[in-house]
Simulated scan of single mutants.
Amino acid sequence: MGAHRSMKPRYAKIVGTGSCLPGQPVTNAELVRRLAERGIETSDSWIVERTGIRQRYLAEAHVGSSQLATEAARAAIAAAGIPAADIDLIIVATSTPDWVFPSTACLVQKAIGAPGGAAFDVQAVCTGFAYAMSVADSMIRTGAANRALVIGAEVFSRILDWSDRGTCVLFGDGAGAVVLAASEEPGIVASKLHADGRHENILRTAGHVSGGAITGHPFLTMDGQAVFKLAVSVLDSVARETVEAAGLTLADIDWLIPHQANVRILHATARKLGLDPDKVVVTVDRHANTSAASVPLALDVAIRDGRIWPGQNVLMEGVGGGFTWGAVLARM
């Protein structure tokens, strides 16, 4: 009989992050002015009090999700210190792709010069980044990939009804990216994903292109109270579930990066989990809600400003239309 060879554990570890925000920030004051020209009344104080948002970035008409994703990807690859050609898996989480097909991931693959590996999009709206990270983690653990580029990229400004004060002030555009690499050291230690399609009506963009025309409703609609109530509940439950799956406790979490939808949801989630508010990374004030891009954008900010460092446990979680929710726990 041949000698038995033990198999070392294989993990997916975050080795680089990057982000991209289009143009210059649009402050609440500037947005209020633009909306006033459309006959829509709001104010900086109204927006800040209800959401915590003070500014956002809005892409120009010629800028698509793939361009933002590409710039974020280049930054993440540079931070990882690897050639783009070494990337053998690209997953883009987006609800606002450039085209029906090919995927945004394929467009990014072409732009960065990394042909040959798998490339595809995932669509779980604001939970998309958690879904994409979980899929990439699984593929790396099984040996189907060695170096993965995971991106959240959105141009939500394209699907906003600018006559609806309740939604148009909430969102922004941007992209965040991470590079995951196979490692013998723990990286992504646990992830949990969920969905409940029975709640599809509370947050959706129920339109489509058919026969060269738009069918259905092409703009985002939201039942704000229903979303708030459900979001706080599932963000609490999936955080606890993921931490338990990792064999840790909430006291072991160094940083919580929730989906950046609304500062009240962020604060309510931290309270329910019993976490110190100082352990919560908050960027909604400067980025607004960038859907699938919000968590990787916040992660990149906190790594680059020195808050997050190697060895720390970072819990990232999302919640969005579908209704979807999920979390990923990473040891940096």
Rank of each mutant, 00 (worst) to 15 (best):
T127L: 05
T127N: 12
G128P: 03
A130C: 15
A130P: 10
Y131D: 12
A132Q: 06
A132N: 02
M133H: 03
M133D: 05
M133C: 09
S134T: 13
V135R: 08
A136H: 01
A136D: 04
A136T: 03
A136K: 02
S138D: 10
M139L: 15
M139H: 13
I140M: 01
I140A: 03
I140N: 03
R141L: 11
T142G: 14
T142C: 15
G143M: 10
A145M: 07
A145W: 03
N146D: 05
R147P: 05
R147Q: 09
R147Y: 09
A148I: 11
L149P: 03
V150L: 10
I151M: 08
G152R: 02
G152C: 01
E154V: 08
E154R: 08
E154Q: 11
E154L: 07
E154A: 09
S157A: 03
I159A: 04
I159G: 03
L160E: 10
D161F: 00
S163T: 15
R165W: 04
G166I: 00
T167C: 09
T167V: 11
C168R: 00
L170M: 09
L170T: 02
F171I: 11
F171L: 12
G172K: 03
A175D: 10
A175I: 10
A177T: 06
A177G: 05
V179Y: 06
V179Q: 10
L180F: 00
A182E: 14
E184D: 15
E184P: 05
G187S: 01
I188F: 12
V189K: 01
V189D: 02
S191G: 04
S191A: 14
K192F: 05
K192T: 13
L193T: 11
L193F: 06
L193A: 11
H194V: 10
A195Y: 04
A195F: 10
A195K: 06
G197K: 11
G197H: 10
R198T: 13
H199L: 14
N201V: 09
I202T: 03
I202H: 05
L203R: 06
T205P: 04
A206E: 08
G207K: 01
G207C: 00
H208D: 15
G211P: 14
G212H: 02
A213N: 15
I214W: 04
T215W: 07
G216I: 01
H217C: 13
H217V: 12
F219G: 02
F219Y: 12
L220E: 08
M222H: 03
G224W: 05
Q225V: 13
F228S: 06
K229L: 01
K229E: 09
L230D: 14
L230I: 13
A231M: 08
A231L: 09
V232L: 07
V232N: 08
V232S: 09
S233Y: 10
S233Q: 15
V234R: 13
V234N: 07
D236K: 14
D236F: 12
A239T: 00
R240W: 09
E241Q: 14
T242D: 01
T242F: 00
T242G: 02
E244M: 06
A245V: 01
A246C: 02
A246D: 04
G247E: 12
G247M: 11
G247W: 08
G247V: 06
L250H: 07
L250Q: 10
A251P: 00
A251D: 12
A251W: 00
D252C: 14
I253A: 05
I253T: 03
D254Y: 02
L256N: 04
